[in-house]
Design a protein around this nucleic acid. Structure first.
Lengths: 192, 192
DNA sequence: TTTTGTGAATATGTTCACAGCG
DNA sequence: CGCTGTGAACATATTCACAAAA
């Protein structure tokens, strides 16, 4: 909307641009203050800046990828991350064939440099794209290096202390969710 | 647990294997009937079979990938999908350099064969890994081909009728979530 | 006017706690 | 006994509906 030069946007417009309701948009935003203009809506540029600040993306977040396999290396070239405030600084892998190369402009380093480089490069978030068997060990090492968050593509549960935030992305889990919805739709589900 | 030959499992064990609580596990399972054994727990093999049936994965679901770019082709070789009940049958791309090749054993077909092959191959779920600009158009074509679900890697909202289920996976969105949590932790948040 | 911001009313989800049953 | 299944209690989230502000 900023690019299109829009000045104001109402909660109703925001709602149907994002699949929710106007009341929900207003309630949610009101948690962070009241910066709408009654009778008009929200000032687009101010709203953008507020959201950026709420999300902690006033400065780009520094990200590293551990595991330069199929998913890991796909992420290294992912334009969308840059445009949304994340910089992929470095990647790590155990495979000597991958180490030393540069994938989409991102250097792939050996695992023994992990802690050192995470700290030296001021990495805040690690994307975990390793086989599940080593995910926990990497998570431990990453934690000790002072990283603040992990996004894990390994389905396995991670045991971590409260010092970092962890989120999961699991393609198979999402497909299972779809499969469940499809079955429910096919077999017919009761409404209360 | 089946592989390890376990006979029974309690809600408490299930809970701490999956990051929830025993009561939650029991409540959730009870939505689909009561098949636990009081005083003992759930029979592992029966539970597996029940979950498989609840999720609609008694037979593998047939999946196609549209867009054989970085993410799309990474998914084509993803072992985890097969082992969890999904078969990637075919992929589609618009790029003549990719069309006709086989990636990780999956044939890449041209976009003009989309509707025909989705129907002919009995595809139930489509993974959308195209640029956002064409996501809506592909979604329309996929809908008309009778597919039951879409998993979209394109952040853009999709306008679809109620005939299919849609889910999104958005790496940048998950990173935004982490960034928010990190900011909240750093700045300190009030507990009520 | 129009659209926000927000209490109050609903609705949904989670936890408690214990009767009931193997 | 021990652990499930489940109402009742509690907590959280969403929607309603309208006074207040530009």
């Amino acid at each position: 909307m900023c690019d299109r030069g829009a000045e104001l946007v109402s909660s109703a417009e925001l709602a149907d641009g994002s699949g929710t309701t106007a009341a929900q948009v207003r309630k949610d935003l009101s948690n962070f203050g009241s910066f709408g203009k009654r009778g008009q809506g929200y000032a687009v540029e101010e709203l953008r800046a507020r959201l950026e600040s709420i999300l902690g993306l006033v400065r780009p977040r520094r990200v590293a990828v551990v595991g330069a396999g199929k998913i890991g290396s796909a992420l290294l070239g992912y334009r969308d991350l840059t445009s949304r405030g994340f910089e992929i600084i470095v990647a790590f892998d155990i495979d000597p064939d991958k180490v030393g190369r540069t994938v989409f402009g991102v250097p792939v380093l050996p695992m023994n440099e992990l802690e050192h480089r995470l700290a030296a490069d001021g990495i805040e978030i690690v994307i975990l794209a390793t086989p599940p068997a080593v995910a926990q060990e990497v998570a431990n090492r990453v934690t000790s290096a002072g990283v603040a968050g992990i996004l894990s593509f390994a389905a396995s549960k991670l045991e971590t202390d409260g010092s970092l935030a962890v989120r999961w992305m699991d393609v198979a889990l999402e497909l299972e969710g779809l499969s469940f919805l499809i079955s429910a739709a096919t077999n017919g589900v009761e409404e209360p």
